[in-house]
Design a binder for these strands. Structure first.
Length: 495
RNA sequence: GGUCUCUUGGCCGAGUGGCUAGGCGGCGGUCUGCAAAACCGUAUACGGCGGUUCGAAUCCGCCAGAGACCUCCA
């Protein structure tokens, strides 16, 4: 491809031309979920964003190794319990399940939801619990290099020491003095030299369910370590792109940089990419605000802020209609707008396969293609790419109406272009196909009824014609009269 | 309190020195037995006040408002 992919690098706060470490290959690491509850809307954003990235990189001809972790150990929950109990073990106690049973359950729903959103599976999906030894090895290295200290069976990263040689806070634009004055002092952290130091290994209390033996104590790894370890293991000491939510930039990614640098003596990540957050009716989505929506809830419409169900593709399309670095506001009005727009786009795709070849083209197909790919190459500007797809929709409709014309070659071009961008790169799926439209008997029955209706109409028997139409309508089948007779399709059924 | 970001028409959301973003909704029209749908056309905008400039929604300053992170978070 002629146009070069440009990516916004959080580390430099600039758009940079993407050049992989190894020509033709891309190593990508994305922070995955902590599997202790149902997947929510917030999970849709990064996974769709980086799915788009993977799909576009592949389209550009790169061989991509996409690594996305599952966090199944080690995140402390300071806010609730006095003990700082592990999220997963806490949930296990509540539900009377084995910790690994909890992990499995929510990992399964996460995978199911991600399939519904038509995201590609990562090539490697490593789990923190499966890399305890590697994490211990990295702690050893950091200790050897003098950037960590052991206290009472726990090991902490020495941020101050690290900052003497390197720069802690560079990713999130902080310096240690700012952090020093603004880090909250928590109870039971008196083991640490400084409040901003973070745990690499934490000694477990006797009742703590998830723990592993180590030379320091029976315990569990610190909550930033897994990503440093697993990205290095599967992508190498230096790799191309690390992605995640903007909320992870500090402290999680900052700590990752520190850990990798402290253990390897160099930085691992070449391009940092962060997707922005989702708000609901202008508010941050949070459990405490009562506007926290799981993906299952949005797909079923089963939540008080939702007027109806929204399909996975509506969510996907909606998210792609905003740039990944902008905050994105969910509202019923906005979602319904996307649902309709997506329907119109998909109708155009369908029309494209029956478009009349009408001699010389009166529209510029190649200009449309250039515009679209230029947008995608400009830091994945999917909203602009989609806008130009709608320019294409306008062309398709005009040709259908006979006000514009397309040559046979241009029709083929347009068809390939639409399919490539809509299905391969944007990863959309035509959901109409799934709703039973493949049932041949049903199709024939509907056609039979509609043919009867045409007869009724020719007799000017409006009563019969209308009752057929209304009856089908109430069954979720939309009837459109056309010059030739009729068209019909399954409507999305509102709940 | 510290650091940072944002404020675009009824809603969502691009753009970032001069040229229509786009979607949804509105309005007008085409089509129709009537509808619905679809299609076509169209109006409405850059938080406020200053400054830089031939020219600013776009750059700079101030003010107002919103949000994010600083604590697990996608």
């Amino acid at each position: 491809m002629g146009n070069e992919l440009v990516i916004y690098n959080t580390l430099t706060r600039k758009k940079e031309v993407f050049r992989p470490l190894v020509e033709g290959k891309v190593g990508l690491y994305v922070c995955g979920p902590t599997v202790y509850s149902d997947s929510h809307l917030g999970h849709a954003r990064p996974n769709i964003t980086f799915d788009l990235l993977v799909r576009y990189l592949k389209y550009l001809g790169y061989k991509v190794r996409y690594v996305r972790n599952i966090t199944d150990v080690g995140h402390l929950e300071n806010e609730e319990e006095e003990t700082g109990e592990d999220k997963i073990s806490k949930r296990a106690r509540i539900e009377q399940l084995e910790p690994m049973e909890v992990v499995q359950k929510y990992m399964n729903t996460f995978h199911h939801n991600m399939r519904q959103l038509n995201t590609l599976s990562p090539d490697i999906e490593p789990r923190a619990s499966g890399h305890i030894i590697e994490q211990q090895q990295m702690i050893d290295l950091i200790l050897e290099n003098g950037f960590a200290y052991e206290v009472n069976g726990s090991v902490y990263f020495d941020v101050e020491k690290y900052n003497e040689k390197y720069q802690y806070g560079k990713l999130s634009g902080r310096n240690l003095d700012d952090i020093r004055t603004n880090t909250r002092k928590l109870d039971s952290q008196d083991e640490k030299k400084n409040p901003f130091d973070f745990a690499l290994w934490k000694k477990a209390s006797p009742g703590h369910i998830m723990q592993w033996p180590s030379k320091w104590s029976n315990g569990f790894p610190g909550w930033h370590l897994e990503c440093s370890v697993m990205s290095t293991k599967y992508l190498g000491e230096i790799f191309d792109i690390h992605g995640g939510g903007l909320d992870l930039a500090f402290p999680h990614h900052e700590c990752e940089i520190a850990q990798s640098t402290a253990s390897l003596g160099k930085e691992s990540v070449r391009y940092w990419m962060h997707n922005n957050m989702i708000t609901i009716n202008g508010q941050k989505m949070a459990r405490s605000l009562g506007n926290f929506i799981t993906l299952d809830e949005i797909f079923s419409g089963n939540h008080k802020v939702l007027e109806k169900a929204y399909s996975p593709m509506t969510i996907r399309f909606f998210l792609l209609q905003a740039h990944y670095r902008s905050t994105m506001d969910f509202s019923n009005e906005a979602l319904k707008a996307s649902e309709k727009g997506l329907g119109r786009l998909m109708d155009a795709v369908e029309d494209l396969s029956n478009l009349p070849d009408s001699g010389n083209s009166t529209v510029d197909v190649s200009g449309l293609k250039e515009k679209t790919f230029a947008a995608l190459s400009d830091d994945l500007n999917s909203p602009v790419a989609i806008a130009s797809l709608f320019d294409g929709v306008k062309i398709i409709n005009s040709v259908k109406n006979g006000t514009d014309h397309l040559s046979k070659q241009d029709i083929e071009d347009l068809k390939l272009f639409f399919h490539t961008v809509i299905f391969d790169i944007l990863g959309l799926v035509d959901e109409k196909d799934k709703d039973g439209a493949k049932d041949e008997v049903l199709n024939k029955v509907v056609e039979l009824l509609l043919n009867l209706r045409v007869e009724a109409k020719s007799r000017k028997d409006w009563h019969t014609a209308d009752s057929i139409r209304d009856g089908l309508n109430s069954l979720g089948i939309e009837v459109k009269d056309t010059k030739e007779g009729f068209e019909w399709k399954f409507k999305k059924i509102d709940s």
